Computed example of a mutant assay.
Amino acid sequence: MNANGGRFVAFRRGSERLPIKGIYAESPSTAMGQDGAAARVTWQNEASKRLATGLPAEVQKQLAAEGLSAVTPDNSGD
């Protein structure tokens, strides 16, 4: 059904035209905004894995493009 500018799934509780009971699905923004929601946990785990593997390579690539080395500075207290 279309109503108020949106679409939703509905089913009838009887043989009459009314009442219709709407079934609302969770939107992606709602799922990502809730701590512990399956979508958010999955996204965070995947993002952490990709960040851990991809960030060092991207930093190295950028350093090489700039002509810099990846040597850490000496922090001897100067």
Results as ranks from 00 to 15, higher is better:
5 G>D: 00
69 S>I: 04
24 Y>K: 13
77 G>K: 00
23 I>M: 13
59 V>P: 02
72 T>M: 07
70 A>E: 03
63 L>A: 05
62 Q>L: 14
22 G>I: 15
12 R>T: 05
54 G>M: 01
43 W>T: 08
61 K>D: 02
68 L>P: 02
69 S>H: 03
26 E>T: 13
31 A>K: 04
66 E>Q: 11
14 G>T: 10
3 A>V: 12
78 D>T: 07
44 Q>I: 09
1 M>R: 10
27 S>A: 15
5 G>C: 02
42 T>N: 08
35 D>S: 11
43 W>M: 14
12 R>H: 07
72 T>F: 07
40 R>L: 03
73 P>W: 10
2 N>Y: 13
23 I>P: 13
54 G>Q: 02
41 V>P: 04
57 A>W: 04
72 T>I: 10
34 Q>M: 12
51 L>I: 12
19 P>L: 05
32 M>P: 05
73 P>I: 11
17 R>Y: 13
57 A>D: 04
29 S>F: 12
42 T>Q: 06
17 R>A: 10
65 A>T: 01
41 V>F: 03
50 R>L: 09
25 A>L: 15
6 G>W: 07
26 E>M: 12
56 P>A: 00
50 R>M: 06
71 V>P: 04
55 L>H: 02
5 G>H: 02
55 L>C: 00
19 P>Q: 03
60 Q>W: 04
75 N>F: 11
45 N>W: 08
45 N>M: 10
74 D>P: 08
70 A>T: 05
78 D>W: 07
37 A>P: 02
67 G>K: 00
36 G>V: 01
70 A>V: 03
37 A>E: 03
